[in-house]
Amino acid sequence: MDDFLVRAVLAGCGVALVCGVLGVFVVWRRMAYFGDTVSHAALLGVVVGVVSGIQANLAVLLVSVVVSFALLALSRRRAWTPDTLLGILAHGSLALGLVILSMVETARIDLLALLFGDILSVTTRDVAVVWIGAVLVLGLAAALWRPLLAISVHEELARVEGVRVALVESALMLMIAAVIAIAMKIVGILLITSLLVIPAATARRFSRGPEQMALFAVLCGAVAVFGGLAGSWQWNTPAGPSIVVAALALFIVSGMMRAPASA
């Protein structure tokens, strides 16, 4: 197997790992559109990186975190409903990113790769970034596992039971921002949310507990990475979208199968 394909598989599996574990929370807490908004803002992050000279992943992480907390603060004020806020911030930040990008025009930026990913060109350094990021995010998720579950069921009950809800919620948003920063290169900012949502949704039917659902989501994501890369190799299709199509196919096929009893 060629080296670039090995790196692609390694990076893809790292992304499937974090996306599976965090994706279940995105599904439970109905954060799909939130993830979408933060990933749209990631383009602005790339531009900020280019303009300021901050390393790209770091710049994306920074901007994603800022946008996440802006969303949280604005939705607490209840001046607008969350979906309106998300719509404004998602497309506002994407458009702003594109406009600034056209003005700086150093022309070294491959817009298509940003939007749809370029997994076949990942470097060894990219693979390292993915796995270091994945280990950090998973460590935090594991440490906060029960509080994360508790606030996903009922925030106020969790608070009465001693969970520091605001802190745990912030940690979750930080983790999602980190996932977007590390997954951007793999599937692109327009498709990241699909790797959070589709494998988790596929896993639901077969899971009897929250941990099992996270594990199955990781497996579904990994299968989609292999399937997508194989398809891309076979038919010369773009790799990022092929991975998402593979995830989608898995979701549809599993949906047609009979659900296991009392799952």
């Binding site: 599904v27 439970w28 807490r29 579950l149 508790a150 069921v153 639901r204 899971s207 507990g209 929250p210």
Partner: peptide
């Protein structure tokens, strides 16, 4: 609480729910 609905897509049995406390 007055109203608590476990997210539809969270597989959680009664024992695990109690343990979340």
């Amino acid at each position: 609480p007055q109203r608590l609905v476990v997210p539809m897509h969270m597989p959680l049995n009664v024992e695990r729910f109690i343990r979340l406390g």
